[in-house]
Amino acid sequence: MLSDALEHLVAGVVDHPDDVSVRHKQLRRGRLLEVRVHPDDLGKVIGRGGRTASSFRTVIGALADGSVRIDFVDVDGR
């Protein structure tokens, strides 16, 4: 559910919604959601001073029980 919710929220604000994907990873220290976006959209999802990224984290954090880390990378990122 969290991955789908995050994918929906991100896809709604970017110019290349089809390039958005979210991968869920279980780390030793908790969950990680890795969001991949088109390179041109990376700045947009992070926002000025990280403001947009922080909004995604706040909303997803509220829907999650327990802590979730969210990373944003562009589709070329490895």
Binding site: G12, T52, S55, F56, V59
Partner: peptide, 11 residues
Amino acid sequence: VLEALQELTRL
């Protein structure tokens, strides 16, 4: 959370 969701909705 409401403020964050408003911000995203505006975007």
